[in-house]
């Protein structure tokens, strides 16, 4: 055999064996992902995409996860509630998760803390951790394709690629990251602002542009929820300190325009009087602590009621 053909044959053999191993690894990880504790980040994503069935959902990033006392909201509204927010995962992730939920069932109320600044193109907006569910849901798949390009359809054929970056969490069953104090997805934070932390260090997004892809994903998700009769309410929860004077309003305006178009109320709670100059309610400038949630959740409940009673 010619040396070149011999080499190509060896590489082909390696590729075939790799596909076999990939199939087995994929199966094992699929099974293990089902056993992840819900209190871990990866487990929470798995639950959000595959299992959650509550009529009231709270979604967003860390500010949603730590600010809304789910049980209090559940008791007050008389409907089962669950927080499916994940730290550092923003509009596109949240939209993809909501779409996967809508593929399975129609929740009654969605409280969405999407972050009014999060449409800026320089803000983080990863959907990487949703790769394992690429083939589970068409709408989730289309969001990943929109965000990461058409080549994803080829890459995702490899199970190991689908689980890239998530596999180590699954293999450890995410135990080290599991937070047992999580209650129905809500995780209160303990601690107060200290020293330098009292200075607001929000990223100053100046003269940045609104990400068209992100805006499109957000708009389609809002539209779909409204078409299916979901009551959607947008929130932005308190921040410590005054408004960032350099803030560009484009993202905020784009979100508010979409909401106005589809009749979605927006409660901009960032500068509530109850929280202004009250460092005891904050863990850091952008996150309220456990004490803060006891003040904030009743305000949210009141706002939700006002919408539901209309």
């Amino acid at each position: 055999m010619k040396p070149l053909y011999k080499l190509l044959l060896v590489l082909l053999l390696l590729f075939v064996v790799l596909l076999g191993v990939d199939f087995l690894v994929g199966r094992v990880l699929d099974k293990m992902a089902d056993k992840l504790p819900d209190q871990s980040e990866v487990g929470l994503t798995h639950l959000s995409v595959k299992k959650v069935d509550a009529p009231v959902l709270i979604i967003g990033s860390s500010r949603a996860r730590h600010h809304y006392n789910t049980r209090q909201i559940e008791d007050s509204l008389g409907m089962h509630a669950y927080t499916i927010a994940r730290d550092a995962h923003f509009v596109s992730y949240q939209s993809a998760v909501l779409n996967s939920v809508l593929d399975r069932y129609t929740p009654k109320v969605v409280l969405w803390e999407c972050g009014l600044n999060n449409l800026f193109s320089k803000e983080r907006d990863a959907v990487h951790c949703l790769h394992p569910y690429y083939y589970d849901c068409d709408s989730l798949r289309s969001i990943i394709d929109k965000k990461e390009g058409a080549s994803m359809a080829v890459k995702m054929r490899l199970n190991m690629y689908r689980y890239n970056g998530v596999a180590s969490n699954i293999l450890m069953l995410s135990r080290s990251a599991a937070r047992p104090d999580t209650m129905q997805g809500f995780l209160p934070i303990k601690g107060n602002l200290k020293g330098n932390d009292t200075i607001l260090k929000m990223p100053e997004v100046v003269a940045d542009t609104v990400d068209a892809v992100r805006l499109d994903i957000f708009k389609n998700t809002i539209k779909r929820m409204r078409d299916q009769g979901v009551t959607v309410i947008l929130f932005d929860s308190p921040v410590y300190e005054l408004e960032n004077p350099h803030r560009n309003m484009a993202s905020e305006q784009a979100i508010k325009d979409v909401c106005a178009q589809y009749g979605v109320p927006v409660f901009d709670n960032r500068y509530l009087d109850e929280f202004r100059n009250s460092p005891e309610y904050f863990f850091d400038p952008t996150h309220i602590n456990k004490e803060g949630t006891t003040v904030y959740t009743p305000i949210v409940i009141g706002q939700v009621r006002s919408v539901l009673e209309k």
């Binding site: 690894v25 190991m160 596999a167």
Partner: peptide
């Protein structure tokens, strides 16, 4: 094979 699997599962792709 193991190196390729490790790259696919744990590499920053």
């Amino acid at each position: 094979l193991l190196l390729i699997c490790y790259i696919l599962l744990c590499g920053e792709l």
